[in-house]
Simulated scan of single mutants.
Amino acid sequence: MVQTNDGPTDPELIRFLREELGGDVSPDEGAWEHVGPIWLWRGKGKDGQPSSMSWHFLTIDGEVAGAIRVASSGHSAAWGSVYVEAGIGKTCWRTSLFPNKAIQGYMLPIKASVRKAEKLAEGDVITVRITLEYERSI
Rank of each mutant, 00 (worst) to 15 (best):
M1F: 00
T4G: 09
D6C: 04
P11K: 13
E12Y: 06
L13M: 04
I14K: 07
R15M: 01
L17S: 00
E19V: 06
E19R: 15
G23Y: 04
D24S: 12
P27E: 10
E29H: 11
G30I: 10
G30W: 12
A31E: 08
W32A: 00
E33K: 14
E33H: 11
E33S: 13
H34Y: 13
V35I: 03
G36Q: 02
I38T: 09
W39V: 10
L40A: 01
W41Q: 12
W41Y: 11
K44P: 05
G45L: 13
G45D: 14
D47A: 14
D47H: 15
D47F: 15
S52F: 02
S52H: 06
M53V: 05
F57G: 03
D61F: 03
G62C: 02
G62W: 02
G62L: 02
G62Q: 04
E63H: 09
E63S: 07
A65T: 01
A67S: 15
A67C: 07
I68P: 10
I68Q: 10
R69G: 02
R69H: 03
H75C: 10
H75I: 08
A77D: 08
A77P: 03
A78Y: 10
W79N: 15
G80K: 14
V82F: 03
Y83W: 09
V84D: 03
E85W: 00
I88F: 12
I88L: 13
G89Y: 08
G89D: 11
K90L: 05
K90H: 10
K90G: 05
C92V: 04
C92L: 08
C92P: 00
W93K: 11
R94M: 06
L97P: 10
L97N: 13
N100H: 12
A102P: 12
Y106V: 01
M107P: 11
L108M: 12
P109E: 06
P109G: 14
P109I: 05
I110G: 04
I110M: 06
K111D: 06
R115Y: 02
A117L: 01
E118C: 09
K119P: 05
L120V: 04
L120I: 03
D124Y: 09
V125D: 11
T127F: 04
T131N: 12
Y134V: 02
E135Q: 13
